[in-house]
């Protein structure tokens, strides 16, 4: 019996390692950057079963949260570049360099698929004394420091949006940090904070139910999911330089992964993204499907990094200058 197993093992090793035509020859490992139940987690767990079907192999997914996602990035980077370890993440690593969270970011990985992106919206308590962006700016000017803005820590979406807002208007507010969208929106409904910038999908239901109100969509045009909410450029056209901007979700493998594996993975996830169930899921959560890979994805990533890095740097949030890493100005 033991000899049989050993034989099987040897056979498997011999066939699996050198001959990549057989990719995937074993289960893959998917490292999810954020905790169970979060936005990234749900998207990855929703799309991967379709990709598994397309590849005929399992992807064992595990959450490795912590350090604004840096731990999962370091971990995946430390694995072999054989295509068996997938990094399932969000936009955060593109800010690691300027935030002083390490030197590894998506430049050291190959994009398998950029699945979707989201559009930020500024929401406020439903009984806040302002209804649109201009009124909010005026109110804050008249009542300095009394308006409480929610934030999710440096490099998080609210910090970048706040930096963007602050680049054109003077916002003298108190920023209260929370450790995620969920807790911050709960705090908004409980009255602990007044205003919070968040991705549309996360706030949509609460807005529709009248538990909070949308002040402005941080985009160049109004969003179909939120009819009647004005885009931020309506009152302040200057914001157009930074837009469109928003969080994104995607899957990466380490640089130098064999071509073969990359193509197989890219094809599988491209298929998975087209699955009607997944499209319906994205639509419902207010995400925009992207489905780009390779160079196109790289271009998107570079632009995103340049816009965001300079924004946070100029608002004084960053530890290092983007110049230090040759990140061009937008």
């Amino acid at each position: 019996m033991t000899r049989k197993i050993l034989g099987a093992a040897v056979a498997a090793v011999l066939t699996a390692t050198p001959v990549l035509a057989d990719f995937p020859a074993k289960d893959m490992q998917g490292i999810i950057m954020w905790g169970a139940g979060g936005g990234t987690d749900v998207i990855m767990r929703a799309v991967t079963p379709h990709a598994e079907k397309a590849m005929g192999a399992k992807v064992v997914m595990q959450n490795m949260s912590g350090g604004v996602g840096a731990i999962s990035v370091k971990y995946t980077y430390a694995q072999k570049a054989d295509g068996y370890t997938l990094l399932m993440g969000a936009e955060n690593p593109q800010l690691y360099k300027v935030m002083g969270l390490g030197d590894v970011d998506y430049a050291d990985f190959i994009p398998i698929s950029m699945l979707a992106r989201g559009v930020p919206v500024i929401v406020a308590q439903s009984d806040a004394p302002f209804d649109n962006f201009r009124e909010m700016v005026d109110y804050i000017e008249a009542n300095p420091k009394t308006v409480k803005f929610g934030s999710t820590g440096p490099g998080g979406l609210p910090s970048v949006v706040n930096a963007m807002l602050g680049s054109q208007v003077n916002l003298d507010v108190t920023t209260v940090p929370y450790n995620g969208d969920g807790p911050a929106m709960t705090a908004l409904q409980g009255g602990a904070i007044d205003v919070f910038p968040v991705v549309i999908g996360a706030a949509l239901d609460h807005i529709n139910a009248g538990r909070m109100k949308a002040i402005a969509v941080v985009d160049t045009e109004a969003n179909p999911a939120l009819p009647g909410v004005q885009p931020i450029v309506e009152d302040y056209a200057e914001y157009a330089t930074y837009l469109p901007w928003g969080p994104f979700f995607g899957i990466w493998v380490k640089k130098d992964t064999p071509e073969e594996a990359v193509t197989t993975l890219q094809a599988a996830y491209a298929d998975a993204l087209d699955a009607p169930e997944f499209q319906a899921f994205l639509d419902q959560r207010g995400f925009t499907p992207m489905n780009i890979a390779g160079d196109e994805a790289q271009e998107y990533l570079d632009r995103w990094q340049s816009v965001s890095s300079w924004l946070v740097y100029e608002s004084g949030l960053a530890k290092h200058s983007p110049e230090k890493f040759d990140i061009p100005r937008p």
Partner: peptide, 16 residues
């Protein structure tokens, strides 16, 4: 929190 995510995946809208 995870059950909420699961409901989303199943096409429901767990929310208010």
């Amino acid at each position: 929190a995870i059950i909420i995510g699961a409901l989303f995946v199943h096409g429901l809208n767990p929310g208010p």
